[in-house]
Each structure stands twice: as structure tokens, then as C-alpha cells.
Write a protein that binds this DNA or RNA. Structure first.
Lengths: 165, 165
DNA sequence: CGTTTGGGACAGCCATATTGACGTATTTAT
DNA sequence: ATAAATACGTCAATATGGCTGTCCCAAACG
């Protein structure tokens, strides 16, 4: 990379147009990814909030309620409603913790796992098309920038997801 | 799992864990970016919907209502409420279109522009920190992957934003 | 001329989030 | 043994930001 002068103080890619480009692409990219599952969710009579819970429970079986709360960054009350609905439909099951019996360990039922897989399939199509088009190097950059947007204090939780499945 | 010799047909970065990583990073990255402006918005008694309108009007002065509707992908009614509130507060002004007098051309007032700038500053801090940490090459990859998530049919609208400011 | 388009407005509804208070079981520390 | 902290659940009330359906007007277009 030829790095011309004056870049030490403020490289070109840190100028306002480049920042705005990132803001916009992040907005549109996120929007289109999430819209990819709205149809299937609508068929099930579920919303995006349900999917987020479903997703993270799929990702980290035996997740506790408080761990899920930290990931979703919503209130206990909001999550409670979602979790009750998912349980009532037989998509999620809760077991009492073994070492700490105050905890509820969350897992998908077979039916829940099947639904999550169906939803993930729609995400996979979207994301893998973008990955394939962009190439491996671009994907690495994509990850790196996004990781930088996550505060230090929470990065551990996100990295932990990678170790699961 | 019926794909034999998966490497040719599907490179490593298209496997499930890599797709999930993208999904999660996009979710967390987007979340943290948007949260960066919630405090300032709260002070003004505005919500994220107001910011999105403010942002795109800042980006493309004399934007018409229908263009803004396409960018935001919400209904006329939802946007109407937001736009009325922004107008009532003197943050946005509307002029009648010159060539087509049915159109309303949207612009920020000086006050609106000042608020948008203040909000953008919070975004800029977040994003430029991530950019700087990741480096120029990663930023290019970040853009490329996100562009791939935007359907062909809408990519033009997003690219057009870059030509404005 | 009739049709289409750009914009606005009504009522009512839904999904998802919030705060604050309170209750209960369980674990941990003194 | 008791006190404190933790994990979870639940109450009521409220806000935000979407949605549908319907109707309307003015201007542009063919």
C-alpha cells in the first residue's frame, strides 16, 4: 500500500465521506440481512425478537437467562415475554441448572432447532452470496472492522460464541 | 450433509461458522453503532426514526419524500409522523418542487444541520476508531461485503448518496 | 380528457422495548 | 446461622415505531 504523506494525522479512509459510507452500508446491510427472514418469521407468527433469542440459544445451548440478557441488551421483562412465548410453542425448553439451581438453562427443542435452521438458511444464502462475491480477503476485513465497533468490555461474549458450534 | 469434497464447491470462509460469525458481528456492530447516538437523541426527545430521516436529508439535500421513503423502506404514514415532528421542531423545512410542484423538497434548517452534525460526531468517533484499528485494507473489505448484502435493485440508491456530499 | 403520481391525513392495531416495584429460591460470605 | 447477593419471574403502566386500510387533493402525463 503506497501511503502518501499527511496520512499520519488523518488518512483518507478516515475522512467524513468514508465514515458516512460505512454508516450507510452498515445500515443497509443490516436491514437487508434481517429482512431476509421476515417472511418465514411472519409465517410462524413470530417477530425478530423471537428470532434473536432463538439464534443465540441455538448458538450456545444451555445458555442461562442472564447470559442471554447480556447478549441481547434488553430488559428482563422484555426477554421474559419472548421466552415464555417460545416455551409455550415448544420451541425452547428450560432446565434447572446443575451446579447452580437458580439458573434456567435454555435449549432448543427439536422443533425449535428445525425452525432456527430454516431461518438460518435464509441468512446463510444472503451472507454467503455476499462473501463469495467479495472474496476471502474482504471477508476478513469485514470481520475486523465490525469487531472494532464492539466495546472491549463485550468482545469476550461475542468471541465466546465462536467456540461453541 | 450431502456435499462431497466440499472445498471446491464451498471454500472455508463459506462454511457455517464463518457465516454465523458474520451474522453476529453485523448484529453487534450495528447495535453498538446505533447506541452511540441514543443519549444525544434522548436529550432532544427524539428517537432513532427521527435520526434516520435527519441523516438522509443531511446527506441528500432537496431529497423528495418518495425518495426518502425508498431509502427508509417504511410506509408513508410512518414517515409522515416523523417528518411532521421534525418540521414542527424547526429541524427540517420543505419547499415545493420546482420542476414538479407536487413534490416536497426536504432540507435541514441550520438548527437541524447542527443537530445532525452533533449526532454524526458520535457515529464518526465510533466508526473511525474501528477503521483506524482495522486499517485501510480491512475497511475496503468491510465495504465490499456490505455492498454485496444490498440487492442489485437498490444498490443504485445507496451509491448515489456517495456522490452528494 | 382520464389516469397516474406525489403527497397528506384519518383511525386503529401490533411488536417490542422501557421503568420501577416486588416476590422467591438459592447461593455465598460473614 | 444469618445476612446479603444473585438468578429469575412477574406486576402495571408507558413509549416508540412500525403496520393496514381508507380516503383525499393537486399536479403531471398521455
Amino acid at each position: 500500500m503506497a501511503v502518501p504523506n499527511a496520512t499520519a494525522a488523518s488518512p483518507l479512509f478516515l475522512r467524513e465521506p468514508e465514515i458516512r459510507r460505512g454508516v450507510e452500508l452498515l445500515y443497509f446491510g443490516y436491514s437487508h440481512m434481517t429482512r431476509a427472514i421476515d417472511d418465514e418469521l411472519g409465517l410462524q407468527g413470530l417477530g425478530r425478537a423471537h428470532h434473536r433469542a432463538l439464534y443465540f440459544i441455538a448458538r450456545q445451548p444451555d445458555l442461562t437467562v442472564s447470559e442471554l440478557l447480556k447478549l441481547l441488551a434488553i430488559t428482563k421483562q422484555s426477554l421474559g415475554r419472548v421466552l415464555n412465548e417460545l416455551s409455550a410453542r415448544g420451541l425452547v425448553e428450560q432446565r434447572t441448572g446443575t451446579s447452580d439451581r437458580r439458573q434456567r438453562l435454555l435449549r432448543l427443542t427439536a422443533e425449535g432447532a428445525a425452525l432456527e435452521a430454516r431461518l438460518f438458511e435464509a441468512l446463510r444464502e444472503k451472507v454467503s452470496a455476499a462473501y463469495a462475491q467479495a472474496g476471502q480477503g474482504a471477508v476478513a476485513g469485514f470481520w475486523t472492522v465490525l469487531e472494532g465497533l464492539i466495546p472491549e468490555s463485550e468482545r469476550g461474549r461475542v468471541v465466546a460464541l465462536q467456540r461453541e458450534r
